[in-house]
Simulated assay, not measured.
Amino acid sequence: MSVAAMVSVQLGMAISVTLIEGLGVDGVAWLRLAWAAVLVLLIVRPRPATVVRSFTRTSFATCVLLGVVTSGITLLFLAALARIPMGTASALEFLGPLGVAVAHGRGRGRLVWPGLAAVGVLLLTQPWTGAVDPVGVLFALGAAACWASYILLTQRAGDAVAGIDALAVSMPVAALVATVVVGPGVSALLTARTLLIGLGLAILLPLVPFVLELLALRRLTTAAFGTLMALEPGVALLAGWVILGQRPDLLGVVGLGLVVMAGVGAARGGGRTASLPLEQG
């Protein structure tokens, strides 16, 4: 489930980049999140009485926070993609899951991996050349912080709320946050074509990945999930190369490899000691 989620994420991201010129970064993010919220509400069809039974005050607040960080991931990462290559942005964003893996992993050896990741990031960004936009790097690091929060909140929401009901709260909240950030100006840029592409993107990202990750985190520790996510920068590099023509140089490939190695080494754990059934609240 985790591997399928990351493939869906990177395909969606690569296609999103092709829409940025017409809609702008914020417009593409809003379009994806708005469609995802509509689809979730159609699929889950939450009723007020059901919501009252399914959520406690704490679990509802957790899902609201999950929606906020979901919007943050989308807005910040797309802003990074508008400025820096996809493989570089994904590797920087991966520092979020890496931090979770290090914090929740076991053994003293895990403290070595942040240093390895730092070397990898330096080789990827190559700040001594001045080729990478520092604002794009900051956007990617902001997305990393949101992704770390997303992993922790997703597992907490998945443990507390039955099925995928958590998405019935988090996705509309994410869409509302994006709407506040973007404002009404994007509506003038929408066409029938972009609306249809946005619908497809909402399925690729965030709907399918978030459902798969929500279910995967019922069965995995956050450390194990962070380890699996180490594959994502590699998938992003391939997607950026094939779809966007962003061919990396040798140092970039080596740097990406170091970040992936750091992620795998930080947490080699397995499943959770007690995975939750889908209908457990």
Score class of each variant (00 low, 15 high):
113 W>H: 07
45 R>V: 13
8 S>V: 12
184 P>T: 00
101 A>R: 06
58 T>P: 00
200 G>R: 07
132 V>H: 13
6 M>N: 08
243 I>D: 08
15 I>G: 02
102 V>Y: 01
173 V>D: 03
205 L>Y: 14
255 G>K: 04
173 V>E: 00
278 L>P: 04
37 A>Q: 02
247 R>G: 00
215 L>V: 12
207 L>V: 13
202 A>I: 07
12 G>A: 13
236 A>E: 01
185 G>L: 01
193 R>W: 14
30 W>Q: 13
164 I>V: 14
196 L>P: 04
23 L>G: 02
223 A>V: 09
188 A>I: 07
97 P>T: 10
245 G>C: 11
273 T>C: 07
243 I>K: 10
33 L>E: 00
55 F>D: 00
110 R>I: 11
234 G>I: 13
110 R>L: 07
59 S>G: 05
169 V>D: 03
253 V>W: 11
23 L>V: 05
62 T>V: 15
85 P>Y: 10
170 S>E: 04
148 A>E: 04
176 L>V: 15
47 R>N: 01
257 G>R: 11
69 V>A: 00
178 A>W: 04
89 A>I: 04
127 P>S: 11
44 V>Y: 11
231 L>E: 01
110 R>C: 09
94 F>N: 02
168 A>M: 01
144 A>N: 09
148 A>W: 03
80 A>P: 00
103 A>R: 01
269 G>C: 01
143 A>P: 07
206 P>M: 12
30 W>K: 01
229 M>Y: 15
164 I>P: 02
254 V>G: 07
40 V>L: 10
63 C>S: 14
49 A>D: 15
200 G>H: 03
214 L>W: 04
196 L>S: 13
234 G>H: 11
135 V>M: 14
76 L>V: 01
193 R>Q: 14
192 A>V: 14
139 F>C: 10
5 A>Y: 10
182 V>T: 15
145 A>S: 14
272 R>F: 01
142 G>H: 08
230 A>Q: 09
153 L>C: 05
31 L>A: 12
114 P>V: 04
92 L>N: 00
270 G>M: 06
200 G>K: 06
273 T>F: 07
29 A>C: 02
121 V>R: 06
18 T>H: 11
134 P>N: 13
62 T>W: 00
231 L>S: 12
169 V>M: 04
173 V>Q: 06
245 G>T: 12
208 V>A: 15
109 G>V: 08
32 R>N: 09
279 E>Y: 06
105 G>R: 03
190 L>T: 07
1 M>I: 06
